[in-house]
């Protein structure tokens, strides 16, 4: 499902309303006497910090019922920025209180109240570690799996101890129903973490897959062909992605997102993975018969032929994978619509699916524009990156009637998306997918 502007605004208002729930609960019913603005503002920042942190569990939890129409890469970008905001709130909460009235420094003093001081210190240190390890995971030399485990544990710990802090301070916690509401709000958030880390893998256990083929591709890429075992498989739309876990158990921290390259008409799932790190390098050594667990499908990077005259597909390198799924689906359903593919690569030998794309041209209305930054000497096609000039030469005149799909490195996405917007293509017609989202 993709969102219209009205739906997007609804989701943003829902997020804002939810972020204000703990603050609203605190301010409901009978209230203690008011204090200085600085003190009250410090308290409000604390409520807001707890709420925003709790909502992070919904944003990042890959729930199709929350914001899926924005695209999960956009949601993750939003998650990252809101995480920094949560860090600022949680640090500003005691800072503002102490600045307004230095007596609040005693909240950190274990001699005054040990449990209160310990929970406060744990939350403060915990969120600094949570955000720092997320922003600079590689600097801290944390593997993706170790970071993912740490991220889950810290999130649960911070929300749990944050709730403990609210209950222990108890300034806005009376009568009892308010405390119950705080427990319910934060408890729901903590459940969502448990759901994505425990319940979801447990559900995946019923739908195993096995790798039946490992195929080498150009440009250090490998295609894994997966077959469902004992179930009909996954229903996906061309262009969507999934998370894959390899090995005997789906309860693994090693879970990675990849676009599905195969057509939805194909009962097998094909993933084409470029060597970009430890995990993606290891897939070429996998043996047929390796068990796999697939979570998904996710994403709104798919073409709905009824909504446009045709599709313009822009891919950089291995960004071709979801685009390939869209093309294979169009070929399989004998789609008469025009498709224009801009495909950027370094060298001709790097072009993944080169022969298959050429063969497709005989079966569908497909124009292919290869752009090579290091072309062979007699190269007749476009040279360099996919630029505005290249698009000028090959885009149709009625560009506003087409749907646009861009997948590749961030600079390509930014350049093409800005260019299309400048040409008057509606934002709703432009779909992007970043493959470096985690």
């Amino acid at each position: 499902m993709k969102y219209s502007l009205a739906q997007s605004i609804c989701w943003i208002l829902t997020f804002l309303a939810l972020a204000l729930v703990p603050l609203g609960v605190g301010m409901a019913g009978s209230l203690p006497p008011g204090r200085d603005f600085g003190v009250e503002f410090g308290v409000m920042l604390g409520f807001l910090g707890l709420a925003v942190l709790s909502l992070q569990c919904v944003i990042s939890g890959r729930f199709n019922w929350f914001g899926a129409g924005f695209g999960f890469d956009n949601l993750l970008e939003f998650h990252k920025l809101i995480g920094i905001f949560a860090l600022i709130l949680v640090l500003a909460h005691p800072a503002m209180l102490i600045a307004a009235n230095p007596v609040f420094i005693a909240y950190f003093d274990p001699r005054e109240n040990a449990p209160r001081a310990i929970t406060l210190s744990l939350v403060t240190i915990g969120i600094v570690v949570l955000v720092a390890t997320s922003l600079w995971r590689k600097f801290f030399k944390l593997s993706y799996e170790a970071w993912r485990a740490l991220h889950g544990v810290l999130t649960l710990g911070i929300i749990f101890f944050g709730l403990g802090h609210v209950v222990m301070v108890d300034h806005y916690g009376e009568p009892l129903w308010k405390k119950a509401a705080f427990v319910l709000f934060t408890g729901a958030a903590m459940y969502l973490v448990v759901h994505s880390r425990v319940v979801r893998p447990w559900l995946m256990k019923r739908k195993p897959y096995t790798i039946i083929e490992v195929r080498e591709e150009p440009n250090n890429a490998t295609t894994l062909v997966l077959e469902p075992v004992g179930h009909p498989g996954m229903k996906h739309r061309a262009g969507q992605f999934l998370w894959i876990t390899l090995g005997k158990s789906p309860f693994s921290m090693q879970q990675h997102p990849y676009s599905i390259a195969s057509s939805p008409q194909n009962p097998k799932i094909e993933l084409t993975i470029k060597d970009l790190g430890d995990f993606s390098r290891s897939v070429r050594d996998l043996a047929p018969g390796t068990p796999a667990w697939l979570e998904g499908p996710y994403g709104c990077f798919y073409h709905d032929p009824g909504t446009a005259k045709g599709a313009v597909l822009v891919a950089g390198g291995v960004g071709i994978t979801p685009v390939m799924s869209i093309l294979r689906a169009a070929r399989d359903r004998r789609d008469p619509q025009p498709y224009i593919l801009f495909f950027g690569n370094t060298a001709w030998t790097d072009v993944i699916f080169r022969e298959e794309i050429e063969a497709m041209r005989a079966h569908m209305n497909l124009k292919v524009v290869h752009c090579l930054t290091a072309p062979p000497p007699d190269w007749p096609g476009e040279q360099g990156y996919i630029t505005k000039d290249v698009m000028d030469r090959h885009l149709p005149n009625d560009i506003e009637n087409y749907a646009y799909f861009i997948c590749g490195p961030r600079p390509l996405l930014d350049l093409v998306e800005q260019d299309l917007r400048a040409r008057g293509v509606p934002a709703a017609s432009i779909h992007t997918e970043r493959f470096d989202m985690v």
Partner: peptide
């Protein structure tokens, strides 16, 4: 379509929430 706007959206939401908290704090301190 939103990836160019994610950071602005996060900033706008953060500002709205901060202003809302400041308004509530101002009301409590009257």
């Amino acid at each position: 379509m939103l990836h160019l706007y994610s950071r602005y959206l996060a900033l706008a939401i953060s500002m709205i929430l901060l202003i809302a908290s400041a308004v509530v704090a101002a009301w409590r301190s009257i």
